[in-house]
Amino acid sequence: MTELLKIENLNKSFGALEVLKGIDLTVEKGETVVILGSSGSGKSTLLRCVNFMEIPTSGRIAIAGKPVGTERSRASGRIQVDYRESELIGIRATVGMVFQHFNLFPHMTAFGNVMEGPRTVLKLPRGECEARAETYLSKVGLADKMHSYPAHLSGGQQQRVAIARALAMEPQLMLFDEATSALDPELVGEVLQTIRSLADEGMTMLIVTHELGFAYSVASKVLFLSDGVILEQGAPDDVLVRPKQQRTRDFLRGHATYKLPDLAIT
């Protein structure tokens, strides 16, 4: 197995507010890592630091064995790094991100949305961009909606277009930031299935979600984040079934207050 992402002593503050306090994380190629935690625990910020939508206050991030930025100093454990915007732009092009609110471009069709990255960023020839758009829209099951505008698609369909848009860049890593939190409950399943099929194909993914059942069944590793530190991490069975920390247990209990008997869904 090769190391695709290595995060070392990552800190992020917004003004006086310390959101991430020393995160260390290694993700192997092909792994699906699910990040759990209550709101305000720093899950989204952690995800957004990986593709430098947020610039870390300190700490080192290496992608595919290549550290990003130039290290300036390493004083008392704090790693200060200088970044060049042009390098970060290159990183973002190789890391796909899917947002809670889809953020599709409303003035483009599904096809146009998926073509946009390859066309504008990768500057591929038109024919190849079209081929990619077709491939990835078919992959998320929307071959018949290619020419629809986002406004005419359901939330689940919009999110699948957003996934196709990220995949069309053929990224080495995918980030999902609460991709199903804004969806009506009956549309959550189709999006989760799409993400699951990516996991099965060996896509490396970091997923922030509140869907614990999904986390349990697709994750190769689960992290529990609390107050900006990783409180617990390990295989789904260790973190979700036999958690060691009281905070993790409280969190899981909060998510499973009411349950249907299994018979109801069969």
Binding site: I89, G90, F105, V121, R165
Partner: peptide, 18 residues
Amino acid sequence: IHRGQWEAAKALGMRYGE
């Protein structure tokens, strides 16, 4: 224009002008 539009474009790897 909603912030999410800037974010989506940036996350794709677009430069400010793009």
